[in-house]
Structures are given as structure tokens and as C-alpha cells.
Write a protein that binds this DNA or RNA. Structure first.
Lengths: 328, 328
DNA sequence: TAGGGGCTAGACAACGTTGTCACGGTACGG
DNA sequence: CCGTACCGTGACAACGTTGTCTAGCCCCTA
């Protein structure tokens, strides 16, 4: 910038004015400055600008895995909202590791992002307290924060799970299995609760072998599928706790020629083209992202008030697999 | 940091030393400093650090749409490599708009990212010349840069397309249609070229109504599907130019009960579970991202030499739909 | 005991920008 | 014709950190 000023024969501040489109510069002066900028290939250094101004026009997003088809639209929605507010998005994947989440979040804070959207992997976010006190805004999405209070946007996991199980019960199923993610994950725990309550309300006992929470690794899920649909009293229906589990379950049932009805949490592409179509509890991940980002920018624009918790409804999409077992 | 220094009764530089784990600080002094840091909730301001050091430990990624199932794994792979090199990833979606691409890339450069991985939407990247001259590294992936020379990682779009068409020809198809993305997009153009050459090599004429390049909007693609499979001389097979087109084609053929064999470019989840399974030309998007990011960090680590172009092979995954028409 | 070497610690400048303020010149009104 | 207001412009400090350089201390040795 110094060089540009020298070449154009003007002061430093005048270059700054031109670069930022501030008023108070003659057309002629502006022309000379722009010429010098062009000639020298000058680009403003935003690090210095940020240092001076305090605001970075950047928001951070931390989620579990960007490549997961559930999170990709969420991430895209956050980006759209950020762009509409003139902000860039810095992104990191925690891989469901609390330590990595904290590391990432603090790295983003050190970069002085204006705000954060977090899909938490950790269950204790007190490490964020100094940041929040320092004025960083944070919105949690998909799962609530742990041991601090902050704006949160969730899906109705409990209600969605209840609806799924009620759907299966409605088709006469009595032995219904549930395969879900690690119980430490809020969504998994809520879906389990919904499953249990729906079963209880229907007057059905839940045998211990019918619930299995843990890794969503295909190998584990496939083994559980096989186990639950075998033996003297196999389940006649499965409720799968998220898109990864559902996909593996469909594949396993198809490969083994096993007959079990199926309802999955999370919609997925092509679910309608299998035969029968896979019945799912659909969330709207893009809407989750949009709402969370919108809330974040409200806070950044100065919205005060207590943290809000927003719960978005889910939608049961019946396609047939809740009735007849999927076969391929 | 000033406050921390004051509270600990030490100099500014000593705090800096502690924060960065530099040697030359007594245990006792370090303890006092850490205590002050804790008490004040101090976090280093990376903007200032970046300003001072010149390196940001951040790389930028610009692609078309983060939510696209093809780009999500690519993005994830770039992030993994970046993390392995201690860098953060800043990310932006161009939405296939050249102006937006330029805007994003320059915004990232203004943030002084160390390097860029770009899936270009533009066909003219001369705007990057000043940045490259200033030492920013850039690697292009999935599509080559326009009017500048830079490291590039591509899939073998031409060869993959040839293979797809040869596969269809091998099953006796003579009237084969191609529905692809906008011809201005490198991958679409290459796949078209592969289609044409394979048809020519098989001694087959390509009637004008059999090729359709343009938006991948479901409405357009569905209409083209219907058109090509109708009339007095309908195609007996379709080659679809990317995952979005393929999905719409499968859906349209199924909904209309239309019989046409199908090979799609890009693999997608569940392709194996439809009946018949959808035959695809599979790319490895994660590998594209990994290779591009690896190349970027080689450059950042000082690798000299001319730009390299790396072309990754594709793989034909035959699942049946190249032979019999998909039906649902 | 004096001198030298090694080690800890602090003062200071610099990174590149922007906000504040002051300056000189011009136009306009009294 | 003088005073005032306003406009374009530049000098300067400040943002928070790190690299360099130097000062002071302690301990060891001659």
C-alpha cells in the first residue's frame, strides 16, 4: 500500500480510501491510485484490516463430517446465509472427537471469527466461556451444547422416533429392533427414548437384544442386523437411527434375503426408488443450517435476550418399507 | 497480552514465549504467566500473528457446491490433508458462477491463505497472476485452469466416457443418447468427446437429437430423457454425464416405465441396490482432493518445477443397467 | 576476586491497515 | 474584502503479535 501511495504520489490514507470506496477522493486522484494498484498488482491485506477493525466478516462451522450426506446440505445452507451477510465460512470437521472439536473451535476463535455454528461432539462446552464473554457468538445445531447455555437449533428427534415406531406398530409389528449411534450422542439418545416410549405406549415389551447403540461402522451395523433378524424370535421390523445405519441395513437385508420391515431416521437420495421405497423420518438439514446461521447473524447484529432453543419438526415419509420388508 | 504481562509482572515478550512454547523461560515464570492467562481468559490473536509472520496456516478451497455428493468427499479429503499439515481450511462455493469464483478466490487471497485448491467455474484465471506472483500456491482439481498454467489434478473424463459407451455398444446398443452438463464445463466437454469418439469407432452415427448438453436441473433432464426415449426412433440406451443427471434419469425412466439401458458418470450411494444396479463410471473424488492437496503442500514446502497435470483413471462398475433397462 | 560465558528477560520496532485529526485551499455569504 | 464553512488530503497512532537486540544475573573458572 505504501508502494501504491508512492507511485501515485498520494498519501497512504488516500489509497485506503480508494480501496474501500470511501467518499472524499477526486476522480482524478482515484484514477491515479487505481492505475498504481493495477500496475503493482496490489491486494489489500485482510489480516491487517481485521487486526485494525476487530471484525473479520468470517464465521466458523464445526461439524462431524463434511462428507456425510446429512451434513453437506446443512453446511451449504450455513454458507449461503453467511454469504448473504457478506461473510466467509471457515470450516472444520471434528470426526466426532471432543478433543478435536475443542481444538478446532479454539483455532477458529483465535482467527477471530465473528461467530460459530457448532454441531457438538463434546458434552462439555465450558471451554467456550471465555470466548463467549469476549463477544464471540455461538449457535449449536443438531445437538445441544453441554454445560453452557447457548442458542440451539434441533430436530424433533424424540417425536420423529416415536412416529417411526408408531408407524411400524400400526402395521402390526410387535418385535421391533432399534439400531442407533453411540448413546452419548444426543440425537441417538433421544431417538432411543422415542423408540422406548412408543413401544411402552403400545404395550410392547422391549427385549434387550432388540436395541443396539454404538458405532455406525457398516461391519457392526450389518452384524447387528443379522443378529436381530435371526434366532428363534427375530424382530419383524427394524428402526434404524440415522442415514448411515439405514443404508447399511438396507444393504444387509437385501444381501441376506432377510425379511424385516424398516423405517430409517433421515431421508436419503434414492430412498424412493428402492422396492419397496424406504420409509423414513425426514429431517431438513438445510433448514437446520439456515435457522442456525440466521440466529447467529441476529446475534451478531446485536440481538440480545436469553438463548433460544428451536426444535424443527420431522416428517414421516411412508414409502412402503414400514409395511412390507424391503427386498431387492 | 499486555494485560497478561502486567498481571504476571513480566514483559510482553515473555508471555509470547510461553504461549508459543519457546524455550528460555523459567518454570516459575511460566507458571505465573499461565496463571495470568487462565485468569484473564486470554487467547492469542491470530490475525496479529499472521500479520507479523506472513504465513497463515490456512488453505482455501473453492468449488461449485459443497452439498453435491461428488464434491463433499473431495472437500473432506482436502481438509484431512490440510489438517495433517497443521492448516485450517476456508471454504467457498462458487455455484458455477465465474464472477463469484473470482470474488471468492480474491477474498481468500486477501485473507492471505497460503494456498488454494480450486474447482474452477471460470475459464480465464489470469486474474490469479498477481497472486501467484506474490507467492500464493494454487492447484486446480476436477477441471483445468483457463489461460494460465498451474498444477492440475483431473479424472480421465474422456477415457471414462469412451469406456461407458463401449460397454453399451458391447451389449448391442446402436442408438445411444448422451445427456450432459453445460458444454462450457471441461468435464462435460471431455465426456461428450469420449462419447462421440466411441460412437465413431463403433461405426455408429450420432443423430443430433441424441446429444443434449445443458443445465442439470431435474426438469430439463427429465424432459430430455422423455424426448430421447420417445418418437419413432427412440434411443435404447442413455449415457448420463454426471451424478445429478443420472439420478434424475433413473427416476424419470422408472416413473415413465420407459425401457432404456443406462450408464452414468459418477458413482452414487445405493446404485447397487436398484434393480438392476446402475452401471457407472466411477471416479474417486476423495483421491482427487487428496492428490490436489498433497501437491499444494509440496509447493508450499518449496517444491519447484513446472506445473504438473495428473490424470486419475476412472473405473467402470458394471451392475446390470448397461445391459437391461432399469425398471422399478 | 575478577572476568567470562550462558541463560533469562525485557525494550523496541515492525507487520499493513484504518480512525482521528489537522491542514491548506476553494467557494460562498455577509 | 474578510470570515466561515467545507472539501480533499496527508501525518500519525494504534490494532496485537513476534524477531532482534541488549541488559542483567548467576555461576564457574583462572
Amino acid at each position: 500500500m505504501k508502494d501504491v501511495a508512492a507511485r501515485a504520489g498520494v498519501g497512504l490514507k488516500t489509497v485506503s480510501r480508494v480501496v474501500n470506496g470511501e467518499p472524499g477522493v477526486t476522480q482524478e486522484t482515484e484514477r491515479r491510485v487505481r492505475e498504481a494498484i493495477e500496475a503493482l498488482g496490489f491486494r489489500r491485506n485482510d489480516s491487517a484490516r481485521i487486526l485494525r477493525k476487530g471484525r473479520t466478516a468470517t464465521v466458523g462451522l464445526v461439524l462431524e463430517d463434511l462428507a456425510d450426506p446429512f451434513y453437506a446440505p446443512l453446511s451449504g445452507a450455513v454458507e449461503d446465509v453467511a454469504r448473504a451477510h457478506g461473510s466467509l465460512l471457515i470450516h472444520g470437521s471434528s470426526g466426532e472427537d471432543p478433543a478435536r472439536e475443542e481444538e478446532l473451535v479454539l483455532a477458529l476463535c483465535a482467527r477471530r471469527v465473528d461467530g460459530l455454528v457448532v454441531v457438538p461432539a463434546s458434552s462439555d462446552h465450558r471451554y467456550l466461556e471465555p470466548e463467549l464473554a469476549a463477544g464471540v457468538a455461538a449457535v449449536f445445531v443438531d445437538r445441544p451444547p453441554g454445560r453452557i447455555s447457548a442458542d440451539t437449533v434441533l430436530s424433533d428427534n424424540y417425536g420423529g422416533a416415536r412416529g417411526a415406531v408408531e408407524h411400524l406398530v400400526g402395521y402390526g409389528h410387535r418385535r421391533i429392533g432399534f439400531i442407533g449411534d453411540h448413546p452419548g450422542i444426543h440425537t441417538a439418545a433421544e431417538r432411543l427414548r422415542g423408540y422406548r416410549d412408543a413401544m411402552a405406549d403400545a404395550g410392547l415389551a422391549v427385549a434387550a437384544p432388540w436395541t443396539s447403540l454404538g458405532s455406525t461402522e457398516p461391519a457392526r451395523v450389518a452384524a447387528e442386523c443379522v443378529r436381530m433378524t435371526s434366532g428363534p424370535e427375530p424382530v419383524t421390523a427394524l428402526f434404524t437411527g440415522n442415514n448411515r445405519v439405514t443404508v447399511t441395513a438396507v444393504r444387509t437385508l437385501a444381501a441376506g434375503g432377510r425379511a424385516a420391515a424398516l423405517v430409517g431416521f433421515d431421508d436419503f437420495e434414492m430412498a424412493d426408488l428402492l422396492s419397496p421405497g424406504i420409509t423414513v423420518v425426514a429431517q431438513d438439514p438445510a433448514e437446520l443450517g439456515r435457522r442456525a446461521a440466521a440466529r447467529l447473524f441476529q446475534r451478531l447484529d446485536g440481538a440480545a435476550g436469553d438463548p433460544e432453543r428451536l426444535v424443527l419438526p420431522t416428517r414421516l415419509v411412508a414409502r412402503g418399507s414400514g409395511e412390507r420388508p424391503p427386498a431387492v
